[in-house]
């Protein structure tokens, strides 16, 4: 994934933040995804306006871990969300509008 040109967007699925964690419901698959605090924050940031790079920057400013670790985890997590069809990933250059 080119993290500067990939813009993840949450699908319209039921979800809810509970304290710092979150739950996402895949109604079609009949599955419930519990997200820890980092996962919940990444999920919230997948708004289609931020690139993966920008999401990593926000998360790195809020959680105590190296940016390299956060980048690796965030990219893997977003790819898993995309595999589960819970986010779509638009590819465009920064500054391009949707």
């Amino acid at each position: 994934m080119d993290s500067a040109e990939a813009f993840p967007l949450r699908r319209s699925v039921p979800w809810r933040v509970l304290d710092t964690e979150a739950l996402v419901v895949d109604v079609k698959g009949g599955l419930l995804y519990p997200l820890n605090s980092v996962g919940a924050r990444i999920w919230e940031l997948c708004d289609g306006a931020r690139s993966v790079d920008e999401i990593v920057g926000v998360v790195a400013g809020e959680f105590a871990a190296s940016e390299a670790t956060i980048r690796a985890d965030a990219v893997e997590f977003i790819e898993r969300l995309a595999d589960a069809n819970l986010v779509s990933i638009e590819r465009r250059r920064k500054g391009e509008s949707r």
Binding site: P14, R16, L18, D19, L23, V25, V27, K28, G30, P34
Partner: peptide
Amino acid sequence: LTPAEVVARAFPEVMLPKRDPRVAE
């Protein structure tokens, strides 16, 4: 249990058609 654990444990045990997104919401 934490709030997220409560909802995750209770959700499957609720008797409703949960494949309807409005119901799940």
